[in-house]
Design a protein around this nucleic acid. Sequence first.
DNA 1: ACATTAATTGTGT
DNA 2: ACACAATTAATGT
Length: 206
Amino acid sequence: MILNLDLPFEPKLLEEINNIGIRKYFLEGDTIINIGNNIKSMPILISGVLKILREDHNGDELLLYFLKQGESCAMTLNCCTRNAKSEIRAVAETNVEILFLPNTKMEEWSANYKSWRNFVFDSYHQRFSELLETIDKIAFLNMDERLLVLLKDKTELQHSLEINQTHQEIANELNTSRVVISRLLKKLERLGKIELHRNRIKIIHL
DNA sequence: ACATTAATTGTGT
DNA sequence: ACACAATTAATGT
């Protein structure tokens, strides 16, 4: 099957990836990787959006960043090469299609293909930047601003102006309480920026 | 069509 | 943060 990841891999590597990679499909909300899972293959996102979450000792979670087409998770990449357990959770934000590459090939490809090395480095770099961004948001933005950024990200990542989530779920992603989110959303609604429905938020303009 | 119920959302303290 | 009220959606009769 022809696979176009829009990644600048050498034809030979691309062929290997096509032969060896295993394609899997997940539905929105599915957990693809959980904390503590042993990572035996490395994922590359073919389509859709993944969200990467961190969890604290109480089980409270926090959204770290999103992954979209052609991207991979540096955290998993890291685990992959060391054969370690995952320290993050990956959940399908939309329906997703993922290509899994066995970690046994990682070293060989790194040695043989420049484009693979570049891809791995770029992935690390991208994730690192995103993590910094996330830290900045948590440290320097108020909750109302963080919520606004999240809504913007979500609408941009999906194509739709509807977010099908409860206030509770959003609160979990931002690691705050449902009441806070409800109040902030209500404020946004009064400003005419959004429309609130049960399990659904319609974006008017942000 | 109506009643019941569970889940989600809204608001005052 | 908690408690409770109000609203909504789903389901059964």
